[in-house]
């Protein structure tokens, strides 16, 4: 028995050490730093002050941008990913499914940096706007706008949304749809009453993945927003790498971690509710 406990311990040790060194300790450092002062030439100087937290308001615009565009981006991803995943999981022959799934992943083989560059050209004045102009549909400014950032977000994060939903739908017992139909439900109501609720864990996972990553996103806004669409991730990069105000950066990071934590907790409550006792569900 003792031997087994020891073995379990040894198995868990690498993961535990990783968790401790790569997550817990850095978080403690960030937390401690957030009460410090900026050093004379930047960096960190020990102190105990709440100034950094009181100054969080100066990054309100970045928080606001992130808290609007991250959920919006997540929602658009969801609205595009769900039909795509549905089509892949339920309406495609197995042979085509493999091909199409690979096509969903293929863009990931290239760096997001290069793909964002492609979008800079596509959304730039000589790209899609020029095409629209040639078609007489006006010449809208796309690049360096929130729209361009959303395009980049949806483009970059779509697969992360597609896969959890695909897996949930693929695992869905197709006989449940037959049962629903057998019990008198037309296909669209079967979708709402069976397919959709049973794919909710996949939807929640996908939304969580995309949302959490978007909260920390900085590359896409920097490249497609041209510095005019500013996320909290960009504020962090600036604070650590440009102004080197590590304590304030740490305070922003702590605030970001808190926002994410709240989101994850909400997510867990939500999924638990789907998994367990829903007495009062409306069935159309």
């Amino acid at each position: 028995m003792q031997r087994q406990a020891l073995r379990t311990w040894l198995f868990l040790a690498p993961a535990g050490a990783w968790f401790l060194c790569m997550l817990v300790l850095p978080l403690i450092v960030v937390f401690v730093y957030s009460f410090g002062e900026r050093g004379a030439a930047g960096g960190y100087a020990p102190a105990f002050t709440f100034d950094n937290f009181l100054n969080l308001g100066s990054r309100w615009a970045a928080f606001k941008n992130t808290l609007i565009l991250a959920p919006l981006g997540t929602l658009i991803c969801l609205l595009i990913a769900y039909p795509l995943a549905y089509f892949l999981a339920l309406k495609t022959s197995p042979r085509w499914r493999t091909v199409l799934l690979i096509l969903v992943i293929v863009p990931f083989w290239t760096s997001i940096l290069i793909r964002s560059y492609a979008w800079i050209y596509l959304l730039g004045g000589q790209g899609i706007p020029a095409l629209l102009n040639a078609l007489g549909l006006g010449n809208p400014r796309l690049i360096n706008t929130p729209f361009a950032v959303l395009v980049g977000i949806v483009y970059g994060y779509l697969p992360l949304m597609v896969f959890p939903i695909y897996v949930a739908l693929e695992r869905l017992d197709k006989r449940l749809l037959e049962a629903s139909s057998d019990l008198g439900s037309p296909p669209w109501r079967s979708f709402l009453q069976v397919t959709l609720p049973l794919s909710m864990p996949g939807v929640a996972t996908g939304c969580m993945l995309v949302f959490i990553l978007l909260m920390g996103e900085f590359l896409i806004p920097a490249m497609l927003g041209g510095g005019k669409v500013f996320f909290i991730g960009n504020a962090l990069v600036d604070l650590f790498l440009q102004s080197r105000n590590w304590p304030f950066g740490s305070a922003v990071a702590v605030a970001l971690v808190l926002v994410m934590l709240i989101t994850v907790l909400a997510y867990m409550r939500f999924t638990r509710r789907w998994a367990g006792g829903r007495d009062d569900v409306s069935l159309m």
Binding site: D173, R175, L176, E178, A179, S180, S181, D182, L183, G184, S185, P186, P187, Q193, V194, P197, L198, W274, R278, D279, V281, L283
Partner: peptide, 29 residues
């Protein structure tokens, strides 16, 4: 189509809706 036929089936592995309670399953039809 099946949903318009006055016929009901007990499926081989029951095909009960896992997200619904027993009562909700029975009330489904």
């Amino acid at each position: 189509p099946p949903h318009q036929r006055p016929v009901n089936m007990v499926f081989q592995h029951y095909a009960l809706f896992p997200h619904l309670t027993v009562a909700q399953n029975i009330a489904y039809g």
